Amino acid sequence: MRAVPLLLTLALVGAASVASAAAAGGPPHANIQAGPADDGLTPAERMAARFPQKVRVGDLVGLPLLDFDDRTLGYVREVVRTPEGGIVLVVPVGGWFGHGGRPVGVPIETVAILGRQIALLDIPPAELPRRATWAAKDGAPISGSEIIRIAITRR
């Protein structure tokens, strides 16, 4: 019987904190800009500031790509190297629950690893479906055993 008053108290405290956050301008991440920052840095410079870490390419394949609200936009199908030497994650976008959509290329400089997920940081999620369809001729697949660098992030 003591658990009921405790649960009621916790629920009231939680509701009060949500109400105070809404009064202060919305959820804690509402004031953080999702999408390209207006800091004058290139995507490569932003990636370098995010402490890029080594990762095996095979460990990235299959990870979900999330927007800032933790919605799954798609799953990494493959990692490729462009003729210019850049690295791109190929992600199907626009399908059901992140599967079966049209493949688009997401530059590695615009994302960061977030646990066992990949966070889209520098491309607005609404722009992703408008990106050009990725074709196999646009780059060469990178072996799953190769090591590349990817930025890290937290929420």
Rank of each mutant, 00 (worst) to 15 (best):
A112G: 12
S20P: 00
I150M: 14
F97R: 14
A48M: 11
R56M: 11
E84M: 10
D138T: 02
L66T: 05
A49D: 09
G115I: 03
S143E: 13
E84N: 14
R56I: 13
V76Y: 04
A30P: 01
V76H: 02
A19C: 09
G139E: 02
V79F: 10
G94M: 09
I142C: 08
I87F: 06
T9E: 11
P92N: 06
V55L: 05
P124V: 02
T82K: 03
I147G: 01
P107S: 09
N31L: 13
P28G: 04
I118C: 08
S143K: 14
A136N: 04
T42D: 08
R155C: 04
T133W: 03
T110W: 03
V55C: 06
G26H: 10
L60D: 10
Q53V: 10
G35V: 02
P107I: 01
G35A: 06
G95M: 10
F97Y: 06
A44E: 15
R77L: 13
G139D: 02
E127P: 00
N31D: 10
A34T: 07
A23H: 13
G98C: 06
W134G: 09
R155T: 07
G26V: 07
I113E: 13
T42M: 07
R46G: 02
G86Q: 13
I123R: 09
Y75L: 11
P27H: 14
A136F: 04
P125L: 02
G74F: 03
P103N: 05
G105T: 01
I118N: 07
L65C: 01
A19F: 10
R130I: 01
V88G: 00
A112F: 03
G95Y: 08
T72Q: 10
R50P: 05
R50Q: 13
V18H: 11
S20V: 14
A15E: 12
E109K: 04
L12Q: 07
V104D: 07
R154M: 05
T72P: 02
E45N: 01
G98R: 10
M47H: 07
K137I: 07
R77D: 12
I118Q: 03
P64E: 05
A22Q: 14
I148T: 09
D38G: 12
G85S: 01
V111D: 01
T82A: 03
L7F: 15
A140I: 07
P28V: 07
G101D: 05
L10W: 12
I148G: 06
V76N: 00
G58Y: 05
L6V: 13
A136P: 06
D69V: 01
G40I: 06
G25C: 02
K137D: 12
L121E: 13
D59F: 09
G35Q: 03
G105K: 00
G58V: 06
E146M: 06
R102K: 12
L63D: 06
I123T: 15
A140M: 11
A151W: 04
S145I: 05
A30M: 08
